[in-house]
Amino acid sequence: MLILHCPCCGVDAAEIELAPGGEAHLKREGPGSSDAALETYLFTRDNPRGVVLERWRHAYGCGKWFLAARDSVTMEVYGTYAAQTHAPPQEIVDRITARHPGWAEAL
């Protein structure tokens, strides 16, 4: 039963107000892409033990999507941030790196 801070409306939302949306920052592959790129886009997920960047929607609240950086083992939340980005903001990266040195390089 997570609590995630919705950066869109400012509410600390209980998990039952949220809908999960899977891995964040996927790059869409449309017509013209290779089979391998399409496969990666549609099916290949890392699902790591440790740091995950994931999509959540404040479904019962403001209705907006946001992104969360979370540890799938300890449930530590490094931060939530806007969905309209291609990478987590530096302050969240710093917080993750403090716990998992070398994490950013391994991306």
Binding site: A19, R57, W65, A83, Q84
Partner: peptide, 13 residues
């Protein structure tokens, strides 16, 4: 509706 909002908010914002 959620599907549409997903694409609008997260892909073609």
């Amino acid at each position: 509706h959620a599907h549409m909002e997903d694409w609008l908010q997260c892909e073609w914002w």
